[in-house]
């Protein structure tokens, strides 16, 4: 470990609360449609003409919609470890928000430990380090049957 400060890889997209982090989304004041990321000016529900939104913390648990992994190093702007270590990816469906959000899966978990419909929880983990800081992002952590978050 080192003493570099921990920073959000993308500022304002999630809370930096290490125990119970949340993605920061938006909710339309008029129709209740959720958005992630939150940056928007006009509601995208075709039946809604709202321009006002509340910042909200999205559910930090959902069901796995699907999953895969990255066996090859992605191009920039991805910052890869040397040597490159493959990682898993999950698309997780949030029940209350009725939307699917993609993200990497925590280190050490591969596709054989996931299943469509399995529960996953949002955690923070390092995306990459630069000279000044450890950049963290949200990742999904699958939860085994019977285990609680």
């Amino acid at each position: 470990m080192n003493n570099k400060p921990v920073q959000a890889a993308i500022e304002g997209w999630f809370t930096l609360d290490t125990d119970t982090p949340h993605l920061i989304g938006a909710c339309c004041e008029k129709c209740g449609t959720y958005y992630f990321p939150k940056t928007l000016s006009f509601c995208k529900n075709p039946a809604c003409d709202s321009t006002t939104f509340n910042e909200v913390e999205l559910s930090r648990q959902g069901k796995i919609w699907s999953y895969t992994n990255a066996c090859y190093k992605p191009p920039e702007p991805f910052v890869a470890d040397e040597p490159f270590v493959p990682y898993a990816i999950a698309a997780v469906e949030l029940e209350k928000e009725q939307m699917i959000i993609l993200g990497q899966v925590v280190k050490g978990v591969d596709v054989d430990q996931m299943k469509v419909g399995k529960t996953a929880t949002l955690v923070l983990e390092t995306l990459h380090e630069d000279d000044d800081a450890i950049k963290v992002t949200w990742k999904w952590q699958p939860i085994a049957q019977g285990e609680s978050a």
């Binding site: 919609w65 699907s66 990255a70 992605p74 702007p77 993609l102 990497q104 992002t137």
Partner: peptide
């Protein structure tokens, strides 16, 4: 999505795995 490590094959693979 590239910054987060999500490439084109990611999407195709998500559909396939499902």
């Amino acid at each position: 999505r590239f910054y987060l490590g999500i490439t084109n094959p990611t999407y195709f693979a998500l559909y396939a795995r499902r």
